[in-house]
């Protein structure tokens, strides 16, 4: 069977089939997984890290880890969430390495004063507007929020990942949520 036909076949396969084939050593099935989930993982890593180049590295490391660790994934249908977890983990590791000192420096930093005027926001798409509001959140609020929303982390998991008490995480998330809801309702 020509290569292109096998690729087309695999593109229609569900994650479970692709994971099973990957575990068996099918490199083409793995490539389909990379193409299917890579862009979202990259967008996520870019959000957390704030850098495209670093995000590329993280996504690449994630897939290399995934290739090695996929045989340990108990439910192959949950590959996407599992991959997002690895990306989170690796991204956070980078952030940790980045800030060797004053790890909580921006914890209580207030949101920037300049409020995005609604008129300017209206011209943007909803995603762009949301992205702008997110970028104006204090770093730790934003990071907690992104881990919860994109990485599907629980409070306890975020706390562990960021080395902060759960109560702090709750507070950061509550503030982020409040700001986001407020902004979103304003431009609705």
């Amino acid at each position: 069977m020509p290569d292109s036909q096998i690729r087309a076949l695999l593109e229609h396969a569900d994650d479970r089939t692709l994971v099973e084939r990957t575990v068996d050593g099918d490199i083409r099935a793995f490539e389909v997984l990379v193409r299917r989930h890579g862009p979202l993982m990259r967008a996520y890593a870019t959000r957390i890290l704030g850098s495209n180049d670093e995000a590329d590295d993280v996504v690449q490391e994630t897939f290399i880890t995934a290739w090695a660790k996929l045989p340990t994934l108990e439910n192959p249908a949950l590959a996407k969430g599992w991959l997002m977890r690895i990306v989170s983990h690796k991204s956070i590791d980078r952030i940790r390495a980045r800030r060797h000192h004053s790890s909580l420096e921006d914890l209580d930093a207030p949101a920037p004063d300049h409020h995005s005027p609604i008129t300017a926001v209206e011209a943007l798409s909803r995603s762009e507007a949301l992205s702008q509001v997110l970028s104006e959140l204090p770093t730790d609020q934003r990071r907690c929020w992104e881990l919860k929303e994109f990485g599907d982390y629980s409070y306890a998991e975020i706390a562990e990942e960021l080395d902060l008490p759960v109560s702090t995480i709750r507070g950061l998330l509550a503030r982020a949520r409040k700001t986001l809801i407020r902004e979103m309702e304003a431009w609705r």
């Binding site: 490199i27 793995f30 490539e31 990379v34 193409r35 890579g38 862009p39 979202l40 990259r42 967008a43 996520y44 870019t46 959000r47 590329d56 996504v59 690449q60 897939f63 290399i64 290739w67 798409s125 995603s127 949301l130 992205s131 997110l134 994109f150």
Partner: peptide, 24 residues
């Protein structure tokens, strides 16, 4: 939002996939 960002970035070149696959 995340999907939009992924879709927008998706149009760029394919080198990131090659880089990953070369590592396997």
């Amino acid at each position: 939002l995340l999907q939009d960002e992924a879709d927008r970035a998706d149009v760029r070149d394919d080198s990131w996939v090659t880089a990953i696959m070369d590592g396997i």
